[in-house]
């Protein structure tokens, strides 16, 4: 079982949702790591949850990317550690340079909160082994800045090298380039995505479409 930590920056607000989803699949609660900590030794998977780190009054994720713990995350990533960033976590990963591109304001300039559908581009990564390739699943989204953008060469490279993790399947509401909802690092050990699979892991909340992602990680 992957030893897992969830980063907590001031202003993060989906850490509880994430911890519940992780604990449900892993059978064990993740460790919560305060943003001023710098020792991530012993951890296999670092999760950066959603929210508004430091209020996101600058570019989303820009302040958090400068936090002491993100230096440690870079070291963790450099030695092949796993990282999952969701929503604000994805923004923090792009601001840190751990993933390419940027998340701009949604195309319609409004916050978007509704279920969206994602297609699984590949199921041979540690994050997606419990999905089928090409499977379409639901996930809630809740963001003001989820419009994924990168230069055409980067987009071509992401597509060419199989680094697109998920695309918006039905409607690309936030205007993301090539409908990209989530991407991997070249070694497929870092995943960033905008929607929230962690908020759809319980039939009572409307479904379990997000659970395979956590089951995939639990099986790793």
């Amino acid at each position: 079982m992957l030893a897992t930590g969830i980063l907590l920056f001031p202003g993060i607000n989906r850490e509880r949702d994430m911890a519940i989803a992780v604990e449900q699949s892993f059978g064990r609660a993740p460790r919560v790591i305060w943003h001023k900590e710098t020792d991530l030794s012993g951890l296999d998977l670092i999760i950066i949850p959603g929210g508004f780190s430091f209020g996101d009054y600058l570019r989303c994720g820009a302040m958090a990317a400068q936090s002491p713990v993100m230096q440690a995350v870079k070291t963790h990533a450099a030695r092949g550690g796993y990282v999952l960033g969701v929503c604000n976590g994805f923004q923090i990963l792009t601001e840190s340079g751990l993933l390419p591109g940027a998340l701009l304001r949604n195309a319609g300039l409004r916050f978007l909160s509704m279920d969206t559908t994602l297609s699984v581009e590949r199921n041979d990564t540690i994050f997606t082994s419990h999905y089928q390739k090409g499977q379409v699943f639901r996930a809630p989204m809740a963001h003001g800045d989820g419009n994924y953008t990168a230069d055409p060469a980067t987009l071509d490279r992401l597509e060419g090298e199989g680094l697109v993790a998920f695309r918006y399947a039905d409607e690309n509401r936030n205007g993301s380039a090539r409908a990209i909802a989530g991407i991997y690092s070249p070694n497929h050990r870092i995943l960033g995505l905008m929607p929230h699979p962690e908020d759809l892991v319980d039939p009572l909340m409307g479904g379990t479409d997000g659970k395979p992602l956590f089951d995939s990680l639990a099986a790793a």
Partner: peptide, 10 residues
């Protein structure tokens, strides 16, 4: 309500 986060907290 599509502009309000209604799911945070899970």
């Amino acid at each position: 309500f599509d502009q309000y986060d209604s799911t945070v907290g899970g």
